[in-house]
């Protein structure tokens, strides 16, 4: 592979590309972990958010509001620099990055999912209740299937936000695509100037993100969902 690239773009650029692609795997791992972890926590908070019990709901609202209002960069600084220094503990960059991105993802995911649940017509809840379904069964059999359909495209779309978000983790020395891109871009080596390296890095991010953007759009069309309506619902809540 590298030999082939070498003949194509020269040995130096082939090596550079190989380094960047190898760093990309960490970007992918971090994205996937944050997406899955954030999704699970987000799901829990979505459910807490709609429980009939008042104080639990308020707690969930506070959680979502907090982590939506905190810049991801600050989360990274706090977990990667603040906590280690304050508690005199060693927090490896990957752990700080994972925790930060997971919290960030969970807040936004539960907001999207709450929007999806809320966009279901009140009549559906009432119809379910009229059939004698309790809250849980109503949610399980009547509301969720409809909400799931609405929530899928923006969920896939949010994956793009997560991937882009991981690019900030280099700031606490997480060895991802961005970190290596910056290293090479700053190296002052001929052939690795910023106007070559950063577009290349951008291209790699684009190749990770754009398919997801397309998939999200395709789902939106095939499921016939008005994402604008959902957007507006979400924004009203936020």
């Amino acid at each position: 592979m590298i030999e082939f690239l070498s003949t194509l773009i020269g040995p130096f650029h082939a090596k550079m590309l190989a380094v960047l692609l190898s760093a990309t795997q960490w970007t992918v791992y971090l994205s996937l972990t944050a997406f899955i972890g954030g999704g699970l926590i987000g799901l829990i908070f979505t459910l807490l958010r709609i429980t009939p019990i008042n104080w639990i709901r308020k707690f969930a609202v506070a959680y979502i509001w907090t982590f939506q209002s905190v810049p991801l960069l600050m989360l990274l600084f706090l977990t990667g620099l603040g906590i280690p220094i304050f508690y005199q503990v060693n927090v490896p960059p990957w752990m700080a990055a994972t925790v930060s991105l997971t919290l960030f993802t969970s807040a936004y995911m539960s907001e999207v999912w709450r929007g999806a649940l809320q966009s279901i017509d009140v009549g559906q809840w009432e119809a379910g209740r009229a059939l004698g379904l309790g809250f849980v069964k109503n949610l399980r059999y009547v509301i969720s299937p409809q909400a799931l359909k609405i929530a899928t495209p923006p969920t896939v779309g949010f994956m793009v936000q997560v991937i882009k978000g991981t690019s900030l983790a280099y700031i606490i020395d997480f060895n991802d695509l961005m970190r290596w891109g910056k290293k090479i871009g700053n190296s002052q080596i001929d052939g690795a100037e910023p106007f070559i390296v950063f577009p290349l890095v951008a291209l790699i991010y684009f190749l990770l993100c754009f398919p997801l953007t397309l998939l999200s759009r395709r789902l939106e069309q095939s499921l016939n969902i008005d994402s604008n309506k959902l957007m507006l619902t979400i924004n009203k809540g936020g």
Binding site: L168, P194, F198, A202
Partner: peptide, 11 residues
């Protein structure tokens, strides 16, 4: 929309 702000910024 499909690339991080930080990369755009450095570029």
């Amino acid at each position: 929309r499909n690339t991080p702000l930080i990369v755009q910024l450095f570029f």
